[in-house]
Amino acid sequence: MTLRLRFHLHYWPILTAVWISLAFIICYLVAIFDQHVHPLFPYISDTGALPPESCIFGQMLNIAACLMFITMYIRFRTVQLLEHVGFSKNYKFWNKFSNIFGFFSCLGISLVANFQETSEITVHFIGAFLAFAVGAVYCIIQAYLTWLSFSSKRLKLIRILLSLLLIPLYITTTVCSALSFKEFNENAFKWKHTDKGYTLHLFATFTEWIMAVLMILYMATFYVEFRSVKFGGLTFVLEDDK
């Protein structure tokens, strides 16, 4: 007796994008309901810093890191298929290189989930750097690989545009956040428009949310290539007792 399991690969990027979006939305709503943060553009990490939303934040982002890693690995294997149709050795190198960046980006998401800013802020910031900055480099390399591939011109331009926006958004978030906290001395979870550094704070949080949305959209674009690739499936065979 043989049991064969098959998976539609193009569902993975959509599932990943939807799951991460739900994680951010649910934690944001719970944090607002509990009055832990100000409703106008809090930091993403602030919406998962205090219980009970911190528990939801940690669990959902851990799952998100796993889903994203699976999506990135499928992308890695999908690009490998093009290595056998006449692409240069550089294509193979950049594919492997991007997979390493993808792994560390997923690790960063897990660190952000498990080391909240209220408990271990240094590890939390390292995780945020891996998730956003290293993740942005992953997107840039993938945009380059897409440009060399047989993908449509529209998809190539979309990935190039999204990836090129990530770096300046990350820099803006980091710089504005650092400058705003130099002027701020109140409750870090509840910024008010009368607080010093409030404008810089809004720039930082707004660009962080935009950056997160763009990365989610980027992951979702893998749906296009995954539709043309089929997974052979896992096969389980029940052997008769002898």
Results as ranks from 00 to 15, higher is better:
114 N>I: 02
32 I>S: 01
121 I>P: 01
101 F>Q: 01
206 F>K: 15
109 I>R: 10
231 F>T: 00
5 L>A: 10
20 I>V: 15
103 F>M: 09
145 L>Q: 10
81 L>K: 14
43 Y>T: 03
73 Y>Q: 06
59 Q>A: 14
110 S>P: 02
54 S>L: 05
6 R>Y: 13
58 G>M: 10
28 Y>T: 00
8 H>R: 04
142 Q>N: 14
242 K>E: 10
94 W>V: 00
50 L>G: 00
197 G>K: 09
148 L>A: 06
32 I>H: 01
234 L>Y: 02
71 T>F: 14
209 W>G: 01
131 A>E: 03
1 M>D: 09
59 Q>R: 08
198 Y>N: 07
65 A>V: 12
46 D>G: 07
15 L>P: 03
162 L>K: 02
50 L>P: 03
12 W>E: 11
117 E>W: 06
19 W>D: 07
202 L>Q: 15
6 R>Q: 13
224 V>E: 15
152 S>A: 01
158 I>Q: 09
226 F>E: 05
231 F>N: 00
150 F>Y: 03
187 N>V: 07
190 K>W: 05
178 A>T: 09
95 N>F: 08
64 A>H: 09
25 I>S: 02
12 W>C: 14
205 T>E: 02
160 I>G: 13
222 F>H: 05
93 F>G: 04
70 I>E: 13
239 E>I: 11
204 A>F: 05
71 T>M: 15
117 E>F: 06
103 F>P: 00
233 G>V: 12
191 W>C: 05
120 E>I: 03
18 V>D: 02
76 F>E: 02
51 P>E: 14
152 S>P: 04
101 F>P: 00
117 E>H: 04
112 V>H: 03
143 A>E: 05
26 I>N: 01
160 I>T: 13
167 I>Y: 02
171 I>F: 06
64 A>C: 13
229 V>C: 01
182 K>G: 15
170 Y>Q: 02
75 R>E: 10
36 H>N: 14
239 E>A: 13
44 I>A: 10
221 T>L: 11
110 S>E: 06
160 I>A: 08
28 Y>N: 00
12 W>L: 15
138 Y>D: 07
10 H>F: 05
52 P>W: 03
86 G>A: 06
139 C>I: 04
135 G>P: 07
67 L>Q: 11
174 T>W: 07
178 A>K: 08
91 Y>A: 00
87 F>M: 11
149 S>N: 12
226 F>H: 12
228 S>E: 09
109 I>S: 13
96 K>M: 05
51 P>Y: 11
214 L>W: 05
120 E>W: 02
108 G>H: 04
86 G>C: 06
124 H>S: 06
186 E>N: 15
3 L>W: 05
154 R>H: 10
153 K>M: 10
14 I>Y: 12
214 L>E: 05
38 H>S: 08
32 I>N: 00
68 M>I: 14
30 V>S: 04
40 L>F: 05
16 T>M: 08
54 S>E: 11
72 M>E: 11
32 I>T: 01
161 L>K: 11
